[in-house]
Amino acid sequence: MGGDHIDGQVLLLAAAKASVGPQRLPDLVEVVQSSLGDRLPEYRREYEVAFEDPDRLGFFVEADHWAELGRQLGLGERERDAVERVHTEQLRRVGRNTDREDEFETALDIREAVVIGRD
């Protein structure tokens, strides 16, 4: 299954709220990861690292980042929204698990989240 850098609970939650089928969501996450994984050094240089663990890195990116990324990857609006929700929910989950939930929620008021898996 795609999205090994995304917790299964996060995929289930996002699939329940997404307007794409739950069987499609892991494939979409994997398409995005394929693109983002190649750009990890760029993200490290350009964006604030929100968290880093052995499996993944989370970044705070500018508002509308997902709109541009979705266009680059040829994702429809529903697909983009679903994948963005996955990344945001993964960041929130890490925040809850590391006692940084308030910090992450404040940042998400003005920025978006991107989570990139490590190879």
Rank of each mutant, 00 (worst) to 15 (best):
Phe104Pro: 00
Ser35Asp: 14
Arg118Lys: 15
Gly21Cys: 11
Leu73Asp: 00
Val83Gln: 01
Leu12Ile: 12
Phe104Ser: 01
Leu12Arg: 10
Ala82Trp: 04
Gly8Cys: 03
Gly95Lys: 02
Val114Ala: 07
Ala50Asp: 03
Ala107Val: 13
Asp81Glu: 15
Lys17Asn: 13
Arg45Met: 06
Arg39Met: 11
Arg80His: 07
Leu13Pro: 00
Ile116Leu: 05
Val94Thr: 10
Ala67Asn: 06
Gly58Lys: 07
Val20Asn: 08
Val115Tyr: 02
Leu75Ser: 04
Pro54Glu: 15
Arg85Asn: 10
Leu108Thr: 03
Gly95His: 01
Trp66Asp: 13
Leu12Asn: 05
Ser35His: 14
Glu68Leu: 14
Glu79Leu: 01
Val115Thr: 14
Gly76Asp: 11
Arg85Leu: 15
Arg45His: 05
Asp38Thr: 10
Leu91Gln: 01
Ala113Gly: 05
His5Met: 12
Asp53His: 04
Arg85Val: 08
Val10Asp: 09
Leu25Ile: 05
Phe104Asn: 03
Asp109Leu: 12
Asp119Cys: 12
Glu52Phe: 05
Lys17Phe: 10
Arg111Asp: 07
Leu28Gly: 11
Ser34Ile: 01
Ser34Cys: 07
Ile110Phe: 15
Thr88Phe: 06
Arg111Cys: 07
Gly2Gln: 03
Glu30Leu: 10
Gly21Asp: 13
Val114Gly: 05
Val31Asp: 10
Ile116Asn: 02
Pro26Lys: 09
Glu101Lys: 07
Leu25Phe: 02
Val20His: 07
Asp55Trp: 03
Asp81Lys: 08
Glu77Gly: 09
Val83Pro: 10
Ala15Leu: 07
Arg56Ile: 02
Asp109Glu: 15
Arg80Gln: 10
Leu40Phe: 07
Arg80Cys: 14
Leu69Trp: 02
Leu75His: 01
Asp27Lys: 04
Gln72Thr: 12
Leu73Trp: 00
Asp4Gly: 12
Glu84Leu: 06
Gly70Asn: 08
Pro22Val: 09
Glu68Gly: 10
Arg96Ala: 01
Asp53Lys: 05
Gly37Pro: 03
Gly21Trp: 06
Glu48Ile: 10
Arg111Trp: 00
Phe59Thr: 01
Leu36Ser: 09
Gly74His: 06
Glu77Ser: 12
Glu103Cys: 08
Val29Glu: 00
Val31Gln: 07
Arg118Cys: 05
Ser34Thr: 11
Val114Arg: 08
Leu73Ile: 04
Gln90Arg: 12
Ala18Tyr: 03
Arg78Gln: 14
Gln90Tyr: 06
Gln23Cys: 07
Asp99Phe: 12
Ala14Leu: 12
Arg80Ala: 12
Arg93Ala: 08
His87Gln: 15
Ile110Asn: 15
